[in-house]
């Protein structure tokens, strides 16, 4: 477990592009079935959520297992933002066929798309404030304040997923539950209880 820490972050990037490589491969060889557009769009969206979930695990792992994977958090977050961006691109180009007027109307009018757009904006802001230079310029306090928005973005991304369906699919509900647990670790009350935070702060 501790050896993982010594892996270069390039490994995360390499593994992180694997879902994209597989998706391109499946598209080219015709593995995507009857409606490739939907498959591409959905797989990109799901992959974004998985990386978002992974990035939320880093701090609890540090606190609980005392394994420091913090250096992997940035690539995980950037991968989540990239897949979310590709997801939007697939929606605009493949699903909507670049019908600009309907796209804009839909984003304004459809809560699940408005939420999706909100999440994407947050993720892009976080990505843009993730370079060493920007982090240094912002200083740790402001940087942390900005990046706390991920606690909103992550569950909203899953909410966006749930809203797109006619029924309540099990997988996003399970992911939402996992996120709730991960986010609960950030609550001062629970942190105090677990002894992660001084009792009188």
């Amino acid at each position: 477990m501790h050896r993982i820490r010594r892996l270069p972050t390039g490994v995360v990037w390499a593994l992180g592009t694997l879902p994209l490589v597989l998706l391109v491969w499946d598209t080219l060889v015709g593995n995507l079935g009857v409606d490739p557009v939907r498959d591409i769009e959905h797989r990109l969206g799901r992959t974004a959520v998985y990386f978002l979930l992974a990035s939320l695990c880093i701090t609890p792992i540090l606190r609980m297992a005392r394994v420091n994977l913090v250096k992997f958090r940035r690539p995980l977050g950037l991968l989540a933002a990239s897949y979310a961006g590709l997801h939007l691109l697939s929606w605009a180009v493949l699903d909507m066929g670049l019908l600009w007027s309907q796209m804009l109307k839909d984003i304004a009018k459809r809560p699940y798309l408005t939420i999706g757009m909100g999440v994407l904006v947050i993720l892009l802001v976080l990505a843009a404030t993730s370079s060493n230079a920007v982090i240094r310029k912002l200083g740790p306090v402001r940087w942390r304040a900005i990046h706390r928005w991920v606690y909103l973005a992550a569950p909203l991304a899953v909410f966006h997923w749930l809203l797109a369906y006619k029924i309540w699919p099990g997988k996003p509900l399970a992911i939402l539950a996992a996120m709730a647990v991960l986010l609960a670790f950030r609550l001062p009350l629970l942190q105090r209880h677990l002894g992660w935070r001084a009792r009188s702060a």
Partner: peptide, 22 residues
């Protein structure tokens, strides 16, 4: 008349291909 959560103005024909549009 839209579905409350999505538009019914256009549709995607299954089998239209990757760039089939709406």
């Amino acid at each position: 008349v839209d579905h409350p959560r999505w538009s019914q103005a256009t549709e995607r024909r299954i089998g239209a291909g990757l760039l089939g549009g709406r």
